[in-house]
Write a protein that binds this DNA or RNA. Structure first.
Lengths: 241, 241
DNA sequence: CGTCTCAACCTGTCCGGACCAGTCAGTAAG
DNA sequence: CTTACTGACTGGTCCGGACAGGTTGAGACG
């Protein structure tokens, strides 16, 4: 329930509490949830704190409100089956490959201008730089460099990186990964890419730059990936509006 | 400014005030806006009301916040409308270019194996093959080859092609364009591409293969586009599911 | 000159409260 | 039976305040 001694903000705990009730069927679509004042009495929390939690859930599409009437559970959004934001691991599995990776380097560096811009940090703020060769069925698929703000994505180790970054971020750090913007362009492989991807001089690569945000808009990741052009194509669908 | 006698909520007036400043250039991207307390003093409004307005603007993508540092104007988002299925003409206009094209060839040919597969036709069925250099601000941007089933997209002429294919299909033929799948990969420019795009041997191109369907699922178009890598990147967003 | 400390700033979270405006059920009057 | 009123509920808007934790720059000290 609500633990006032928890480091997790009270409004956030209430959000999770209500979401859990919706997910497990305790609260059904179009059902009224207890009013703000009832929750305030129930949990001995101020109504403003309740309102903050409920406002967030309304913004996220879980609830809807009607002035004078109450707050109701929303029907489940149609899940956009269009390609979602997935990690490299998830993407390779989707394509039927066995994903893997070889760590090239892992360090904390002061963010340069480009990285600071992308992550909306001050220049020289410490960030993790993780450089990996990503494998599919044990063959190099991409050279990937990931930047994460060190004071946001805390406590990274090589072990965590060798497992799943997204899982660590979502489950251990309880950060809500939300959306990403990707820029896709063609390029000619540079020296390090040639070596690490085991391709010939003059080979093309598909360069994908991804900037990812948490639900609250905070950038948490910037990734540069150079994919072997002979092994990877990006596929997606779009609709006429 | 802020009119406390107005029926419009104060927090909403503040939102519009700040948005107006962003739109008219008074506030630039990454610039700090006055702090919550400064606005509170300025307008004699409670800090909570200020926070409500700013939170809404953060949620809408106009601002971003950094704890301990301030609230900043966000860069204008890449317009989400780029996400949809658009023609080259629409895409270039969206990016602020003047679109144009130079017809290279236009003929009816019997569909080869690859084209027949893509358009779900029998081999040798007649299709239009339209080859164009697409221009942006009068500079070659892409070499585009479009295939359309001749008995579905009827009556094509050079004049129609020089205007808008999508407009002709939707308005004259009353066909409902629905969705497309795109494959994006990196490649090295081939001979014809080198000449027509005015690039050097060994240059990379972004190769985009698009298969488009009508609302009833019928494929109506298959397009191969080779974009100059120095002038074009594909940008899109995706969300975590 | 480099380092450390501290004050003054910032946003984040939470409190308790007041009043406004919409909705609805119950009751009284015609 | 209909209409109007009232009270109790709802969410919406706003107030003034307190404390926590992050950031930054100025000043002191070695």
């Amino acid at each position: 329930m609500i633990d006032k001694n928890s480091p997790i903000p009270i409004y956030h705990q209430l959000e999770e509490f209500i979401k859990a009730q919706i997910d497990n069927g305790e609260l059904q679509a179009d059902e009224t949830i207890p009013s703000e004042r009832v929750y305030a009495d129930m949990f001995q929390i101020s109504r403003m704190t309740i309102r903050q939690a409920l406002t967030n859930l309304v913004n996220d599409g879980y609830l809807y409100r009607q002035k004078g009437k109450g707050t109701f559970v929303n029907k489940k959004k149609v899940e956009q089956r269009l390609q979602g934001l997935t990690s490299f691991t998830e993407d390779m599995r989707e394509r039927g490959f066995t994903p893997g990776s070889r760590l090239v380097s892992f360090e904390i560096i002061p963010a340069g201008r480009e990285i600071a811009d992308r992550l909306k940090l001050s220049e020289n703020t410490p960030v993790y730089e993780i450089k990996r060769v990503r494998l599919a069925d044990n063959v190099p698929m991409a050279l990937e460099t990931t930047y994460l703000p060190a004071n946001l994505v805390k406590g990274l180790t090589e072990e965590i990186i060798n497992q799943s970054l997204y899982q660590y971020i979502e489950e251990k750090l309880s950060l809500a990964i939300h959306e990403a913007t990707q820029e896709i362009e063609a390029s000619i492989a540079k020296d390090q890419e040639l070596r690490l991807l085991e391709i010939d001089k003059g080979s093309p690569v598909l360069l994908i730059l991804r900037s990812s945000n948490l639900k609250d808009g905070t950038p948490f990741e910037f990734v540069k990936s150079a994919y072997r052009a002979d092994r990877y194509k990006f596929v997606h669908t779009m609709q006429r509006s």
